[in-house]
Nucleic acid binder design. Structure first.
Lengths: 201, 201
DNA sequence: GTCTATATTTGGATAGAC
DNA sequence: GTCTATCCAAATATAGAC
């Protein structure tokens, strides 16, 4: 009689190779641009022929999709590592800083996750799930500050998106816009946290 | 003896065709995405073979470059049409509104002009000239408001870039972020225009 | 000025041997 | 699981006829 081992060594090996391909894909797009990903180049990087990649991913599109999910999961992981005990406003600032750091440390990843720039690419519902969780974790932090209106939440995301976009497209690697963040968050809280101002709840 | 006519009808015709090709290129990328521009498709749109386009533009890159200059010239033209007599803060708001309208009315153009997303594309110095003028006109409007520091100017551009980016990538065609603009500009002026606050000059 | 013809390269993807 | 072989399509660009 045949027995079924508890560990599937084959499956583990496959998963490891998939991971390796994904990492190589990130390296490639970081070096050449998001749209410059090709199966040939990617194969070369992992020491395979392009055709062999199809044993791990059904298509190039599937690779972008895996990258989209991967990036969002990474961001979510970091958000979960934030201290829970900080006071509410400090926590919002930590979320903001986390987002900015995440954006500027890898502009191409930011482009894939938050800018709609790849013609024809649409993340699959499965890959989109962690992206929704990311969004929700930010909203929860704002709610804990008493900021509940859609407008006020949208203003916060716009502010951060603007800093990230300006920094990455005008001075990649620098801090010219990054260092404005605290000042702009002061300004934001002065306007949107004041309990008496209209439109905050 | 041969005489030289004052009008060069041939050159005029060529310029008109170049313009026609440029317009078709804009249509194409608006429909298919910035990176989806191909000489074949473009040729089809203007009723030519792809090869014939090379009589008007030396390369596909040259077409992107002409589009970059074209978009910036259009923005500059609109900025010059702004009323000169408005009070300084109103004028800054008009610049902001102009920018936002310009961004959302054609997200692909915004992508080409303000986001660095085309692998390998770098505008030529000539095409970059109008882009510099665009920037300078915004800075002049802020200066007229007493806003002179780099920080304060950068904060304003970040704020607008954020609204434009959020609107175009999360709700293209909508107004969810656009309608926050006035409120955020109020907030901005309250912080950066106050003569006594630090960092405004 | 536009065409046909063609060179050349590149890229996604499949079939089947080992 | 990776390879060779190959296909097919698409894309940029040049040469030369009309």
């Amino acid at each position: 009689m045949s027995v079924t081992p508890v560990r599937d060594r084959r499956a583990e090996r496959t998963a490891a190779t998939r991971r390796e391909i994904l990492d190589a894909a990130w390296e490639l797009v970081r070096a050449e641009g998001l749209a410059a990903l090709t199966m040939r180049d990617l194969g070369t990087r992992v020491g395979m022929r392009a055709q062999s990649l199809y044993g791990y991913y059904a298509s190039k599109h599937a690779i972008y999709d895996a990258m989209f999910a991967d990036g969002n999961r990474e961001l979510l992981r970091r958000k979960r590592d934030l201290p829970e005990s900080a006071d509410p406003e400090q926590l919002v600032r930590l979320h903001g800083r986390l987002f900015l750091d995440f954006a500027v440390e890898d502009p191409v990843r930011y482009q894939l996750l938050f800018q709609r720039t790849l013609p024809g690419f649409e993340p699959s519902p499965e890959s989109y799930t962690p992206a929704v969780e990311v969004l929700e974790s930010g909203r929860a932090a704002l709610r804990a500050c008493g900021i509940r209106s859609q407008r006020a939440m949208d203003a916060f995301t716009a502010l951060n998106a603007g800093l990230a976009a300006q920094q990455t497209s005008n001075e990649p690697g620098g801090t010219r816009w990054l260092r404005l963040a605290d000042e702009m968050w002061d300004m934001y809280f002065a306007r949107y946290r004041a309990p008496t101002s209209k439109g905050t709840r």
